[in-house]
Design a protein around this nucleic acid. Structure first.
Lengths: 320, 320
DNA sequence: GCCATCGAGGCAACCGGTTGCACAACCTTG
DNA sequence: CAAGGTTGTGCAACCGGTTGCCTCGATGGC
């Protein structure tokens, strides 16, 4: 099988500790010995076993990244940014998908606990209480959720939602449908909070919904029936599903109903009509989260990133 | 810190080996003792350290899954299917993205080697030789690549490409552009092979290209200039980029040029015109790959999955 | 009543590394 | 030339489990 530290030690007539030091503390070993060891190691194809090393040092140089749904185009850019950032710091990132299931999420975290030095939790579906409990075993950085005393990367959803509502108000919309996401989503709560506090609006809530096209498609009939002239959707996928659903009922967007999404994903840009949306800084969030995880002694720094409204073609003057 | 097996042993007055057996060979321990141990373990929040266990047993119950680009919508369904299948067999899957870079790919495989029981290699960019070398250290299943003696899950690209070309021929197309993918892609080679062997066609090759919208956009001018009335693109993303690029030059699809992609991803279904494409069975591939990896003693079984042509709106009669 | 059998659990070596400490050889310095 | 300092390496304990082997007491058959 693969060569171990012992094989190398034997093959060059030194003690294993010398081989070990050659790799983890090169300055402690005589240059001549070192190069001999390196030569033999290379010859045997030796590579330190990271799991074994982690056992004594307590450091794995791995990070975990847990997302609710990889197939949501919002996540891949965040994942890639996080991986790139981690790679620059000599870390590797293991990604896992929870399928939007809190039980799977917990299970994954427990599995990851001893195999990584920290976990990035993206848009978690677990309760705050559970996350706090799990945080005793492994450092976390949470993305898109505010939990007291825990490092977090937030996107300013409230601000974005405010801009979106303002934009709709400017276009003359008063009765607005709010199509929320899944239970346990912080983003969803933020949106609802802002909307509820905005004066002069006539809101209709729909939720919880699956955060996918399917979710959007499913509520389309109800939204159409409720008399709203505009919709604020949980995310772009829901918005796209909604538009598809409305189109099937021959309700034009934005002529009859205006639609705004969240995230600014690629399919939204390619869609006809091009989607008006609140852009979320996914790459920056991925990078920041890694930095926070690696630098922080675990104390709860919180970073809030800005969002911006991007007006395209799916919003227009209110239909009377 | 987290409780270890020793803490549990001490707290219930038994030897560590008894605690160990309680978890890994329950039938060897007295039911009364076992339940006492379980109670104490639960109380202390003990969970076996998987890395430590792996050190002696040689099994981690983890699988690695390496893809070239997570943000290509083709992969997420495959990833999810693989994860679900693995979960059913008590395995966990760690996903990593190589950014289409063979060096990163190699690095990732080496890192993963000792931390997983096997690796699923999706559309690798490494050379066959290198993959064979790495396979000495960890079992592989390769997806979308044929390597002698190595278990593989293939999709019948040749058959799909044949159907696509036939479809185009039926529509009267003779001069056809072949927009290939990145260097090192087996899929790309298969496509070219079939096309070259199909009689009666007038082929123009373009490549290598980035396997993304950007890649498609970039070749659009050349494709437009080459006089072809139809295009077979490396994948749907390239096809979409191409259509976008042609649209910018006011060249209508399918009126002036017909376009066929590969994969059948969601954005292709939402696009106007809806994309004609060769559907690849991504979920089935993910599941099969996991099965192959877990069951096979490593001997090179190869599974080939069927592809199908899905005719939508991006292909039409040849423009004279 | 004796011996073979069996179930339960302890002992200790081992997986592949890391690291504090000891020690020997060599080098300074006064 | 003795005292004190460096440098390079070996020794052995340790990380958190697993597992082959052994012991011990209880049971059962004859």
């Amino acid at each position: 099988m693969a060569a171990t530290i012992k094989d190398v030690a034997r093959a060059c007539g030194v003690h294993v500790s010398t081989v070990s030091r050659t790799f983890s503390a090169p300055h402690l070993v005589n240059p001549a010995t070192r190069s001999r060891v390196l030569a033999v190691a290379d010859d045997l194809g030796y590579r330190p076993n990271r799991a074994a090393r982690a056992l004594t040092t307590g450091r794995t140089f791995n990070l975990g990244l847990i997302v609710a749904d990889i197939s949501n185009p919002f996540f891949p850019p965040l994942i890639k940014a996080a991986q790139a950032q981690a790679r620059g710091r000599d870390y590797h990132v293991f990604v896992a998908d929870t399928d939007e299931d809190p039980r799977v999420e917990e299970e994954l975290i427990r599995t990851l606990t001893k195999q990584v030095d920290g976990v990035l939790l993206c848009s978690p579906r677990l309760s705050n209480k559970m996350i706090e409990r799990l945080a005793e075993d492994v450092p976390f950085v949470v993305i898109n959720r505010r939990i007291k005393g825990m490092p977090a990367v937030l996107m300013n959803v409230a601000h974005g939602a405010g801009l979106a509502l303002e934009h709709l108000a400017d276009l003359g919309h008063r009765r607005i449908a709010l199509v929320s996401g899944p239970i346990g989503s912080w983003t969803s709560n933020e949106m609802q909070g802002v909307a509820a506090e905005t004066p002069g609006l006539d809101l209709v809530f729909f939720g919880p919904n699956q955060p996918t096209e399917t979710g959007g498609l499913a509520v389309a009939p109800e939204v159409a029936a409720c008399g709203a002239t505009a919709v604020l959707a949980y995310n772009d996928l829901v918005a796209l599903g909604l538009i598809e659903g409305l189109a099937a009922m021959e309700i034009g967007v934005p002529d009859r109903i205006s639609v705004i999404g969240f995230d600014d994903i690629l399919p939204g840009r390619l869609n006809r009509p091009k989607l008006t949306t609140v852009a979320m800084p996914a790459e920056a969030a991925g990078r920041m989260a890694v930095d926070l995880l690696l630098q922080s002694g675990g104390e709860g720094a919180t970073v809030t990133l800005d969002t911006a409204l991007i007006v395209r073609e799916s919003t227009g003057k209110a239909h009377k």
